[in-house]
């Protein structure tokens, strides 16, 4: 088993909340992603065993959504919104700034596996643009100074 006892327990608690077991697929994938930072075929099988639905149904759902990558990424996943409201306030330049600061191109992970940088669609922070999401939290109204400070803090924490 790759999923921890805690994750298994959380997934089992989700099942009775729904009239049909299949509804627990997305919550289960989310719990697995929170533990591992990715969800691959082995995890689909573990989830299928726990909530007792066929493996193929897990795979079918998981591959539709953007939040369940099949391979691990950096410890900190930096997702920059590149959609219109953020782009009007410099999101493209923000991505360039992050590429320079991290020494990687968009879509890549730093060699120390600390940061992965990707750009994503609208995250609902349009009036506090530009913004980025790092793991589960939003960082908004970004400026170069703020970005420097955030990266320094994360490096110190790691």
């Amino acid at each position: 088993m790759i999923l921890t006892q805690e994750s298994v327990k959380l997934i089992k608690e989700k099942v009775p909340l729904y009239p049909r077991r299949k509804s627990a697929i997305l919550p289960a994938l989310t719990i697995a992603y929170h533990q591992l930072g990715y969800v691959d075929d082995d995890i689909y099988r573990e989830i299928a065993d726990i909530i007792k639905v066929p493996y193929v149904e897990i795979a079918e759902a998981a591959t539709f959504y953007t939040m369940f990558p099949k391979a691990p990424r950096g410890k900190y996943l930096i997702q920059v919104c590149h959609n219109i409201s953020c782009a009007l306030l410099g999101a493209d330049s923000l991505i360039g700034y992050l590429e320079k600061r991290l020494g990687i191109a968009k879509g890549e992970t730093t060699p120390d596996k600390l940061f992965t940088l990707i750009s994503v669609e609208c995250l609902g922070s349009c009036a506090t643009a530009p913004m980025m999401q790092i793991n589960h939290d939003f960082y908004e109204n970004l400026t170069p100074q703020k970005v420097d400070q955030i990266l320094d803090e994360l490096r110190a924490e790691a």
Partner: peptide
């Protein structure tokens, strides 16, 4: 599921 670009009210 607020995701329409520009919309950030429900959040």
């Amino acid at each position: 599921d607020e995701s329409e670009p520009g919309t950030c009210k429900d959040r």
